[in-house]
Structure formats: C-alpha cells, structure tokens
Amino acid sequence: MSNTLFAPPGTDWQRLSPRYLTMKLLLIPIGWTVAFVPPAVAAFLFVEPRWVGWTVVAVWAVFLTWRLVRAPFAFRRWGYAERDTDVYLTSGLFQRRLVCVPYGRMQLVELESGPLERAFGLATVEMITASTQGGIKIPGLRYEDAAALRERLIARGETQQAGI
C-alpha cells in the first residue's frame, strides 16, 4: 500500500494473537443474537403484519454478516511496536488511528483479563497516561505475552519517567 501514514516505525508491527479473532468470531453472533431476540420476539407476537418481524430478522442477518466479514480485516489492522523511548499502536479499519505513547508518560500499565479472555488465554494491556484522551489499549494478546509486555513497559517507564 502506498499510504505511508500508518506505516510501522522502522520495525514491523507486532500483531495480536489469532485466538483473539476466534473469540471475536464467536462473540459477534452471540452478542448480536442476544440484542435482536427481544425485538424480533416482540415483533412476531404483537405486531400484526408478519413482514415487520421478518424485517427485524433480515436486519439482524445483514448486521451479523457485515460484522463477521469485517472482523478479520479489522483484526489485521491492529498492530503495536515497541521502540527505545515509546510504543506505537495502530488500529481501525475505516476510522484509522496511530498512537504513540512515550514510556516516560505512562503513569500506570494495567493488565486485564476477563472470564472470556481467560478462557481463550488472552489479556488486554492498557497504558494509562495523565490524559484520558488516548484510550490506549492493546487487546487480544496471549496472556504470557501481555504479562511480559507489561513488565517491559513498567521497567522502561521507571527509567524514563518524566513527571507530568
């Protein structure tokens, strides 16, 4: 791709664990089905013309297909790169972003792993700066990788701490 705007900074992007994609592909149908069951049931039971209910089902099918098709592409957009003084992070399929967080700005590095993520052996690393504008999370890392990444980030953050 000729677009260098989101090119990696010298090194290649580190990618997320493929298990994250698997988890997403499982969660998307469950989530959208749960969201659509109550309106669909209500439409079939209480609304007279049948086509209203079928419309809800059709919308559900279109949304679901769209999300499932989109998921692998969005997954491939995720990437991060550790450098000497900062971390690069890129994500987003349509609304693309590239964030850079200097180690010295990290006030906290958090490791989260909910029940679902644990079942897939995954974890999320969140870098917290004095600003809340960043929203700098790396999801879908293998748990061991995430723990190691967090240790590295904290260690570098301590040596390069720049105050606020």
Partner: peptide
C-alpha cells in the same frame, strides 16, 4: 502526553489526516 494521528474514510479519500 501522547500523540495520535487519525484518518476517517473521507479523509483517506482526500489524502488528509488529523493530528491530536
């Protein structure tokens, strides 16, 4: 603190980007 560059679909079409 941190630095971000972002690009929406329209911006990509026009070859533009926003720096935050």
């Amino acid at each position: 603190q941190s630095l971000e560059v972002e690009q929406g679909p329209l911006q990509r079409w026009l070859g533009l980007a926003t720096v935050a």
